[in-house]
Amino acid sequence: MFKKTILLAAALGLIFALGAGNAQAARDYISIVGSSTVYPFATVVAEQFGKTTSYKTPKIESTGSGGGLKLFCAGVGVEHPDITNASRAIKSSEKEMCVKNGVKEIVEVKIGYDGIVMANSKKSAPLKLTRRDIFLALAKEVPDPKGGEKLVANPYKTWKDVNPSLPNVKIEVLGPPPTSGTRDAFAELAMEAGAKTFDWIKAMKKTDKKAYKAVCHTVREDGAYIEAGENDNLIVQKLEANPDAFGIFGFSFLDQNTDKIQGSYIEGVQPTFDGIAAGDYPVSRPLFFYVKKAHVDVIPGMKEYLKEFTSEKAWGPDGYLSEKGMIPMPDAERKQYHNAVENLTPLMMK
């Protein structure tokens, strides 16, 4: 009994000692959190930065965009991250949270684009889809094929049912689960855009925004869409095994596996590096990171890290990030954000 109390006391003492000792100690490395989509790019920059400067390599956690912003906005101080990566822009509710916790000045940096692709095995022919086809094939409820402004449970079994020009192949799509940012972006950029081609659904946006969102973003649950987990490599492997199946994932995974899989045309454009960079491929989203201005002069190496990230050799058209599959921004946009970083222009918080 004594032994136990002594040990517990010792353990608690240890915690306190470490806690007290560390809370004050300065951090000598940059702490970054955020999107798993930006993770493969930010890590390359961090590694390059760590190897070519005398600073320590930044620590990058893959927490997802929302999780990252939550940590980022929790306050100012060494125990909070300095930078958060995001595969979408910060929401106004998140800005409010930041301000409430004393994070008053943040710098938004757009770094490039990521295409979301629908791909299948090279053993089959590529599909030529419109976003309307995607919506009809994957939404839980679709407009009644018999006509009328009425929603019915998705009756389509094959791609041919959706659009007679498509092959007579069972609809079978492997994609990320609802928790994933890729899924959100796909729902918004592909499905919602497809749904909007029906005028009466588009009209719903004004009358009943909630119902509109539900119609556009709810994916069918009858087995045609298979949640394949967050691991995109797994989806690629499954596509190889099943030539009839399609997968949804980030462009970088297509880029690394061009020998096995191909991207479907969407609105006549195939997801290629140039197609996405030119803005022709419709299903692509911007990638960002946000910098806590109050930390820039406190954490060693912050300025240099920002400089590395916004240098042409990193995010330029021939930069090493493009080799990892990130789609660079047009010159003008790069210049704009480069200046924003240089001057640390804070984001409007209202």
Binding site: Y29, V33, Y39, A42, T43, A46, E47, G50, K56, T57, K59, I60, E61, S62, T63
Partner: peptide
């Protein structure tokens, strides 16, 4: 926060 990219 231990699921992170850490080089050192």
């Amino acid at each position: 926060g231990m699921v992170a990219f850490i080089v050192d």
